[in-house]
Design a binder for these strands. Structure first.
Lengths: 142, 142
DNA sequence: TGCAAATGTTTGTACATACAAATAAAAGGG
DNA sequence: CCCTTTTATTTGTATGTACAAACATTTGCA
């Protein structure tokens, strides 16, 4: 039974969560090449482009809670992909030599994933749809 | 910084996950009234409408993996909202007196949530959007 | 008829995330 | 200048989900 036909197919909660899970599954497969979950890969890419970045801005850019950012950074620190220094109140996050080497491959994954999506969903449709999705969250939460 | 403006605003993985998290947050607030997570509420509503339902069909209808279904049923069993019987190879799930009493309130929550969504996003926009979202997962995974 | 493959469900384990509370530092006001 | 409030981050804890492996039952076929 397809979601669209199911009892609760009109529910935004249901639809968005189902979509996110399926999308994540595809994304996981793509980022497997660099042995990273897509979510960690995004964090890493930001750190690579903005050395010294702090958890606060990361939080805003990734739309995650502060505690989730801390946890993600910890995990990447364990794998020697970022380092963290705390001075006064501010924590700064830096990439490492290891993660710098990965940079081109990370961007390759972004491209790959995009190609996968457009191939499956259609380029125009995909862009339009992602655009809509980006607009909704601001409307939903204060 | 909004997702739409951020570096990775074109990415379907990023957009759909962000949307799902924000939507879930709103949904949690609505279903708080019945002290259930929206995901468990959906399971319960299906069980209430299809007594004797088995994990397999639930899996299909909810688009979740078998193990997740097992875990959800366990949790609801602990709270005496469902019971499970296993005979031969098939497990059947039934509602309880307690959960039957909740039924009208569950549907109220569905309505509440829908009203919230349409008020925030716009009714036409909301329906159109949910429709699109329901179609994409089938294209993404085999 | 008996064994192998298929099917349905559960268990072990891991992970991403969130909320609430704790901590630490800075800023502001009397 | 000290005390309170605010801000930034981390910790403790809980939850929802998935994957892989285990298990149990049924089916199919040789």
């Amino acid at each position: 039974m397809k979601a669209a036909n199911s009892r609760y197919g009109r529910c935004m909660y249901f639809a968005s969560n189902t979509l996110a899970r399926k999308t994540e599954k595809l994304a996981n497969a793509v980022w497997k090449k660099v042995d990273l979950s897509p979510s960690h890969a995004y964090l890493l890419m930001i750190v690579l482009e903005e050395p010294r970045v702090q958890p606060g801005p990361l939080r805003q850019e990734l739309h995650l809670t502060p505690s989730t950012i801390t946890r993600q950074v910890e995990k990447r620190e364990d794998k020697k992909l970022v380092v963290r220094t705390t001075e006064d109140k501010t924590t700064s996050i830096y990439h490492t030599a290891k993660s710098k080497e990965m940079k081109p491959f990370l961007h390759e994954c972004v491209d790959d994933f995009y190609k996968n999506c457009t191939a499956l969903v259609g380029k125009h449709e995909c862009n339009r749809f992602v655009n809509s999705m980006n607009k909704i969250p601001d409307k939903l939460v204060s």
